[in-house]
Design a protein around this nucleic acid. Structure first.
Lengths: 240, 240
DNA sequence: TTTACTTTGTGTCCTAATTACACTATCAAA
DNA sequence: TTTGATAGTGTAATTAGGACACAAAGTAAA
């Protein structure tokens, strides 16, 4: 009844931002394969919705709840079944050797502070790796990562989802660097500030940075209420 | 070896444009279910790539080759297995009663003249139905249709894919009505013309409409070479 | 052959958005 | 008190977007 479905898996591209660059959570699969790193993922249960499965996989891995998740799409072609090294996958698939696995990929945005690899005690430990440093991954995960990066780029041009990658309180410079990291191109500082302020969805706090060896920066928070109000009115251009 | 996989299907949302409104190909499933109409779709073979399966389903249905196809995403939750009326699906699923089906949805854009239902002699006959008239479909197909419409809207704001819905030679008015139908909002005639001409990807022909009871219109064709040249240069704003 | 009907095709003005660009202010640390 | 680092700000020029009305070219009907 509540069994794993050996034909369908979910894989998650979990992005984090360290105030300088984008990072992704990857899992070390050991050394019995050409590419040791893989995206976190798992087979799904027959009783599960797709989104639930992705949420579950991420919570099992990182302990994070209420995670921002978005589907990227379905991947997986017959070649997938030739790579037979992931032990869990092998075990599940054993009964039906000719089957293939379709994987439904998700991307998610988390605050990096919410998951610190070795401070957490989960079975598989994932680690943060800079997106730019990844040029090989197990299975078709490199393709999935590319699609995730592209989807994120497109999405952030339309919706203010970047705030999921920042702490509650953040500076405009941090937000600026985040957009540059995602879009992979420099954005003029003054033009960026003007534009983001005109969107009218961030609120300055009565608080500044302290302890920094330079002029302390104004802190802001994302005004979710105002954003939702604007979208309800039909406003939909939060683009860059 | 080359068997149907009873867990994974593809469904296709095939859009056509009759110079007035958007239409979708639907199949009449007979009367043994609450909602008789469904999107064309089928289970996939284990040896098939996902895209291949979608291409195959469409070619089997309409005979059209070289179709424009784009994945929308994966759908399907456990509820799906409770609706047990599609005979083919039942038969395929019989051996494994507790399984669920994930469907990978695609949307495709075709020139309506390429598929005229009763002129073709395929087993299942699909028919064109105005998108606006559809408010019920079998399974979760209404949800898929909504997602398809939304994806198409977003996509046409970025890429010039609309030309797949028009014949080789078309008028600016036809193109104008197409954009209005997809975006579901009126666009100013003069501003539309100015903008589309500035994109510089359509070429006027040495030819006009004839036989029309009004001023004959200039005919244009989509300049694919120029479009690809522009994208290679890094230009990517074909938006509306 | 004239008139009515229908759709094509065009230009300007105004406002909003985008781009490029450089210097002063404020803090910690040396 | 000097140095080093980042924050924070305005303007001018260009480009894009939105609103708007009328003459031209064909067929069909009188």
């Amino acid at each position: 009844m509540n069994e794993l479905n050996p034909h369908i898996s979910v894989d998650c591209v979990v992005f984090g931002f360290d105030f300088e660059k984008l990072n992704v959570l990857v899992i070390d699969r050991g050394s019995n394969d050409t590419s040791r790193m893989a995206l976190p993922g798992n087979l799904i249960y027959n009783s599960e919705h797709l989104n639930e499965a992705a949420t579950r996989v991420l919570e099992e891995l990182t302990g994070i709840k209420n995670i921002y998740l978005e589907q990227i799409g379905a991947f997986g072609d017959p070649l997938r079944s030739k790579k037979q090294s992931d032990q869990e996958w092998l075990k599940a698939i054993r009964s039906e050797p000719s089957a293939r696995v379709i994987t439904v990929a998700y991307f998610s945005l988390v605050k990096m502070a919410d998951y610190i690899p070795h401070a957490s005690s989960f079975a598989k430990v994932a680690s943060w790796v800079s997106v730019k440093e990844i040029n090989e991954l197990a299975f078709d995960h490199l393709e999935i990562l590319s699609a995730a990066k592209e989807t994120l780029k497109q999405k952030i041009k339309i919706q203010p989802i970047g705030f999921n990658l920042l702490p509650e309180k953040f500076t405009l410079s941090q937000l600026h660097r985040l957009y540059e990291a995602i879009l992979e191109k420099p954005l003029d500082k003054r033009n960026f500030r003007r534009k983001i302020q005109k969107l009218d969805i961030i609120t300055p706090l009565r608080e500044k940075q302290f302890g920094v060896p330079h002029k302390p920066s104004q802190l802001y928070k994302f005004n979710k209420e105002k954003y939702e109000l604007l979208t309800k009115i039909g406003f939909d251009n939060f683009g860059f």
